[in-house]
Amino acid sequence: MRQLPQQGFIHQDFSRAEAIGGLFWLSLGALISVFLEVMYLGTWIALPGGSSIAFPYTILIAFFFTMVLSRTAALWSNRAVIAAIPLYVWVAGYTVMMMWPVFGDAQLLGSNIRSVLLLGAGVIGGIWPLIKVK
């Protein structure tokens, strides 16, 4: 029986267009991610007895998903500045949603600690894989 190799193989023979395409799709994922994380940031869970409690689970999702995005982007580029493009897009999406009342009537991000924690978790999760390797 044939044994599988112990080490993984990372394909590094790709064109610049493939790398740009990969970073584009990761950036699109970052935009969709930040939109959903902001939309569900104000989630409440109903408790027995009729009371409710805030349950901002999207803060953890932001941390881990931006970590995955940055780690995957690092496969397309060895330069941390380029690998951080999905993180830049995530932060730009967050900023647009923070400034949304300027463009329309609805306020998407509240002025509360959950919004600050979401931003912090997203940024730290996105930076972590890029500085951990160094």
Results as ranks from 00 to 15, higher is better:
31 L>M: 14
68 V>F: 11
133 V>H: 11
132 K>M: 12
109 L>C: 06
100 W>I: 00
66 T>E: 07
107 Q>L: 09
35 F>P: 00
18 E>Y: 04
107 Q>C: 11
21 G>R: 01
30 A>T: 15
129 P>H: 10
58 T>C: 02
97 M>P: 15
83 A>S: 07
4 L>K: 04
90 W>G: 01
116 V>W: 06
29 G>K: 08
28 L>A: 11
28 L>V: 13
113 I>Y: 13
117 L>M: 10
22 G>W: 05
52 S>H: 08
129 P>W: 09
57 Y>T: 12
9 F>N: 15
38 V>K: 05
2 R>Y: 15
120 G>H: 00
25 W>V: 11
36 L>R: 06
86 P>W: 01
80 A>R: 15
3 Q>C: 03
43 T>K: 00
58 T>K: 04
96 V>T: 06
115 S>R: 04
51 S>Q: 14
14 F>L: 14
56 P>M: 07
76 W>F: 11
44 W>K: 15
116 V>P: 00
99 M>Q: 13
41 L>E: 05
12 Q>T: 11
108 L>H: 05
58 T>W: 02
47 L>Y: 02
14 F>K: 04
28 L>F: 11
69 L>I: 01
22 G>F: 03
39 M>W: 13
73 A>L: 02
117 L>H: 02
22 G>E: 01
78 N>C: 05
53 I>R: 04
127 I>A: 07
60 L>Q: 06
92 A>D: 08
78 N>Q: 11
102 V>D: 06
29 G>W: 14
69 L>G: 02
71 R>A: 12
113 I>Q: 09
35 F>T: 13
90 W>C: 01
84 A>D: 08
15 S>R: 06
5 P>H: 04
55 F>Q: 01
36 L>W: 12
99 M>Y: 12
10 I>D: 09
90 W>N: 05
16 R>E: 07
126 G>F: 03
37 E>N: 07
111 S>E: 10
8 G>W: 02
44 W>G: 03
72 T>N: 13
20 I>P: 01
120 G>T: 15
29 G>N: 09
134 K>L: 06
123 V>N: 08
41 L>W: 00
92 A>S: 08
60 L>S: 06
119 L>V: 01
25 W>N: 13
53 I>K: 04
122 G>P: 07
85 I>D: 01
6 Q>V: 12
49 G>L: 00
103 F>L: 09
